[in-house]
Amino acid sequence: MDYILETTDLGIAFGGLKAAEHVNISIKKNEIYGLIGPNGAGKTTIFNIITGVYQPTWGSFKLDGEVIKNLPQEKINQKGIARTFQNIRLFNNMTVVRNVMVGLHNRKEYKCGFFTSVLRLPKHFKVEKEMREKAKELLDIFGLLEERNNLACNLPYGKQRKLEIARALATNPKLLLLDEPAAGMNPNETMELAETIKLIRDKFDMTILLIDHDLKFVSGLCDRVTVLNFGTVLADGNISEVLNNKDVIEAYIGKKEEDE
């Protein structure tokens, strides 16, 4: 079986605190995979390890069969892992279209050296024009084309989320990590977002790993999930099985009184 992402015994300790331990996740190509768990379970920590913000204390992970080790964040992104953030991090003082164009920066087809740009050689104009067209294409998919000249900070919350996903997709990743994409959205926006995520999977042939607390949202989207609690895997597998798992229910809503 070909896995896009495969973690083996991944773990990290901050001093004496084990934030994550023995985390094994295997994500198939073209799958939407969920990572759920109560607050402080270590979900975002796992994201940060996979994107290179932290180096794992134990274990390792493979992207598309290749072991990724000791790489800085930008290199990991160039290998093909893109992410969004729990609290949106856009380039606020730049226009929407430029936010996406930053995402296109490292693509091979838009290579343009420093001196080519400063000397304004014809290649610079060609590359700029192509990047802009490509960015507009991406924005169109997310319904942000009309807003392309607004500053990113002036967009409403839902659109900022979408823009962040568009920017991540612009880097041409193999695996897209979404950290609580539905946080702070109303039910309508959440449904719309679920449709967008499905669309991304089909249109870009993308593999997606997402964190969210909205179990309805997760169960509607994900084929398989992993539940984390206190840094360890509580359960994983098919969504319906996992949500009926006794341990999972206990972790989320606690024990029944007679069980105690």
């Binding site: 994107t51 930008e74 992104n77 380039f91 003082n93 730049m94 995402g103 920066h105 490292n106």
Partner: peptide, 29 residues
């Protein structure tokens, strides 16, 4: 000005706006 108004300038201003996001977007900070 030619530097600022190019893809390299965009990368530089993206570092100003959010270094974390710039790194995650693959910019060599």
């Amino acid at each position: 000005q030619n530097l600022i108004r190019s893809k390299h300038g965009r990368a530089i201003t993206s570092i100003r706006d959010s270094e974390i996001a710039a790194r995650a977007t693959g910019i060599n900070v």
